[in-house]
Design a protein around this nucleic acid. Structure first.
Length: 303
DNA sequence: GTAAAAATAT
DNA sequence: AATATTTTTA
């Protein structure tokens, strides 16, 4: 008997799970669905700056080598398990806000792709904005098309907003209230390439044979919603706990840090108190310099 | 309270 | 992928 005990004791140590075998429980234990369903949120009564907010939930980059499974899975059978066992990855990402810069990039991408190839997926790739999803682009594209459509309709009279520049905050002639579609501030903030409005005009194909996907190298733009809007902030604080800047200065967007096809770019942006988005775009036309045309976003040299 | 924007569903 | 619908935000 004693031998057995000795054996057991010896094995006890051996059977301890190694580091790699330990399940990464550092993530939230409550799935998004559950959290939403039960209305669980991060109680944040004091919305000062950043309290003792613990470390941000580290995104699961990849499961450790050994996928050692413990006796029981997670509560696999919860009735309507929905078959989702990827909580952290499925975290709801914050509402994307299309800033003029972001939109500009969008327009440029579409312009370079041509209407034909301008599909969400391609656009997204070309934009190569980290954190941007295809859905985001699709939705935006939808609205943008609507916008273009309406512009065409009004092109007979006074819809000069597109090419010219009614980019001024309020100059143009956009009269809100009158039902003027040109009031789409966002869209109006970025000049619309001519051929957008007149499909098939003049010439058939557009000149842009190439620009496949080789052009998509890597940009420096990262999407980040949550500007200085108080509402948003509070809202997102509930959703993701916090958005604060870490002490080290290393910012980690758990939701943005998704590894896209391209490498992930850590935006070392301070993201202090009210930096809406961190990016390093070009001049980002301040609002109608009059008529910019070329786009400078691609790695043509020094973007 | 409404309109606009984004997300989501079809 | 496109569009219709719903939800969320300003």
């Amino acid at each position: 008997m004693r031998e057995e005990e000795s054996n057991w004791f010896a094995r006890w140590e051996e059977e301890l799970p190694s580091q790699e075998e330990l399940m990464p429980l550092s993530q939230t234990l409550i799935t998004r669905d559950l959290a939403l369903a039960f209305d669980i949120r991060n109680s944040n009564p004091n919305h000062h700056q950043q309290q003792q907010v613990p470390p941000p939930p580290p995104p699961p980059p990849a499961m450790p080598p050994s996928s050692a499974e413990f006796g029981g899975e997670n509560s696999a059978e919860l009735g309507s398990g929905a078959g989702s066992d990827e909580p952290a990855r499925t975290l709801k990402r914050p509402r994307l806000v299309w800033t003029p810069q972001l939109h500009k990039r969008f327009v440029d991408a579409v312009a370079h792709l041509g209407i034909k190839n301008a599909v969400p997926k391609t656009i997204m790739q070309l934009m190569s904005v980290d954190g941007l999803t295809r859905e985001n682009v699709a939705s935006h594209l939808q609205k943008y098309r609507l916008y273009l459509k309406r512009m065409q309709g009004l092109s007979g009279g006074a819809a000069a907003a597109a090419g010219g520049g009614g980019v001024n905050g309020s100059g143009g002639g956009a009269v809100s209230g009158g039902g003027d579609p040109a009031t789409d501030h966002l869209f109006a903030s970025s000049p619309v390439p001519a051929h957008f409005l007149h499909p098939g005009r003049s010439n058939s194909e557009h000149f842009l044979p190439f620009v496949p996907m080789a052009a998509i190298h890597q940009q420096q733009m990262a999407v980040a919603a949550v500007g200085n809007h108080p509402h948003l902030q509070s809202q997102y604080q509930r959703q993701m706990g916090h958005f604060g800047s870490p002490p080290n200065g290393q910012f980690e967007h758990t939701f943005l840090a998704r590894q896209q096809q391209q490498q992930v770019h850590r935006i070392g942006a301070p993201l202090h108190n009210s930096v809406p988005y961190v990016e390093d775009l070009e001049s980002a036309n301040g609002g109608g310099g009059g008529g910019r045309r070329v786009l400078t976003l691609f790695p043509t040299g020094d973007d």
